[in-house]
Amino acid sequence: MSYENLDVWKRAARLSVTLYQETKDLRDFGFRDQLTRSGLSIPSNIAEGYERDSDKEIARFLTIAKGSAGELRTQILIGIQAGFLPKETATSWADEAQQIGRILGALIRRHRNK
Score class of each variant (00 low, 15 high):
Arg73Val: 06
Ile64Gly: 00
Glu57Arg: 04
Gly30Lys: 13
Asp33Ala: 09
Asp25Leu: 08
Asp95Lys: 11
Leu85Asn: 07
Leu85Lys: 01
Ile78Phe: 13
Arg102Trp: 11
Lys56Pro: 02
Thr23Gly: 11
Ala90Cys: 09
Ile58Thr: 05
Ser16Asp: 12
Leu104Met: 12
Leu85Thr: 00
Met1Ala: 05
Leu40His: 10
Met1Lys: 12
Phe29Val: 15
Ala13Trp: 13
Ile42Glu: 05
Gly67Asn: 07
Leu104Ile: 02
Lys66Ser: 12
Arg112Lys: 14
Tyr50His: 04
Thr63Ser: 11
Leu26Gln: 02
Glu48Lys: 14
Met1Phe: 06
Ala47Thr: 04
Ile76Leu: 11
Ala12Pro: 04
Glu88Val: 05
Ile78Lys: 10
Gln75Trp: 12
Leu35Phe: 07
Leu15Pro: 02
Ser44Pro: 09
Ala90Pro: 02
Phe84Met: 08
His111Asn: 12
Gly83Ile: 15
Ile100Val: 03
Ser68Gly: 04
Ile108Asn: 11
Thr91His: 02
Leu77Ile: 13
Ala97Cys: 07
Val8Tyr: 00
Met1Asp: 01
Glu22Met: 11
Lys24His: 14
Thr89Ser: 10
Ser2Trp: 08
Leu15Cys: 08
Ala97Asp: 03
Arg60Trp: 08
Asp7Thr: 14
Thr89Arg: 06
Ala13Val: 14
Lys87Arg: 15
Arg37Leu: 12
Arg14Pro: 06
Gly83His: 06
